[in-house]
């Protein structure tokens, strides 16, 4: 279970950028169960999840210097990297990860995130997990199923519409509704900045 606060994760990543192996070990110990859980959920295969986890952590080690706290939280950075590797492992054309490489390729003159420093956040990731699970319960069943198909299966809105026979507009509305509900439910508990908002 992840116990580290976002600030602690960011500090480890900063030390990893300076080739600090101990920081890497601590970062791994704090995040590996969550990352591996995510990969097992997406890939549904522990052996493949292990291979992808190895790639992800080596990529995190290599790219630690490119982490920019102004652009988002360390956890969302890790998730985007892990999820894109896992989704690509399920696709033959590996198009998803290469499309997301735009995120890193963007010049810093055009910031992705709020340029102001983020305030301290009390909730560590294990506390956030409990809040998220509660927030997921507040979604309607169709919203929950749709957002899970999009997030964990990597299905596009069109694919979901085709596979479920639900109109595309409805699928988009469910994804939007689910994300908005998660934000609305979590914002008061996690603080304004934790969602990356203004």
């Amino acid at each position: 279970m992840t116990q580290a606060s976002p600030e602690q994760l960011a500090a480890w990543i900063q030390r990893m950028a300076a080739q600090d192996e101990r920081a890497f070990a601590e970062f791994y110990d704090a995040t590996s169960a969550s990352v591996f859980g995510l990969l097992v959920r997406i890939l549904k295969d522990r052996t493949q999840a292990e291979e992808v986890a190895q790639e992800v952590y080596l990529q995190l080690w290599r790219k630690a210097g490119s982490f920019d706290p102004e652009r988002g939280s360390p956890w969302s950075w890790v998730v985007v990297m892990a999820r894109s590797r896992a989704i690509d492992a399920t696709r033959s054309d590996r198009s998803y990860g290469s499309a997301l490489s735009d995120l890193e390729a963007r010049p810093t003159a055009q910031p992705l995130g709020n340029p102001t420093p983020r305030p301290d956040r009390a909730a560590d990731l294990s506390e956030q997990r409990e809040l998220v699970q509660g927030a997921m319960e507040s979604l309607t069943e169709p919203q929950r199923e749709t957002i899970q198909a999009a997030f964990f299966e990597g299905w596009s809105h069109r694919e979901i519409a085709k596979r479920t026979g639900v109109p595309l507009g409805t699928v988009k509305g469910r994804v939007r509704g689910a994300l908005a509900t998660l934000e609305n439910v979590l914002r008061p508990q996690l603080g304004e900045q934790s969602m990356g908002g203004d």
């Binding site: 279970m1 992840t2 590996s32 169960a33 969550s34 591996f36 859980g37 995510l38 097992v40 959920r41 522990r46 652009r71 988002g72 939280s73 956890w75 969302s76 890790v78 998730v79 985007v80 892990a82 999820r83 995120l103 992705l112 995130g113 709020n114 990731l125 956030q128 997990r129 998220v132 699970q133 927030a135 997921m136 957002i147 899970q148 997030f151 964990f152 994300l179 998660l182 934000e183 979590l186 934790s194 969602m195 990356g196 908002g197």
Partner: peptide, 18 residues
């Protein structure tokens, strides 16, 4: 960025696995 943060939180809905 805000959407990316929401996705980071969504990942926590997957149960952790050692």
């Amino acid at each position: 960025d805000r959407t990316m943060e929401a996705m980071g939180l969504l990942a926590l809905s997957a149960p952790p696995v050692d």
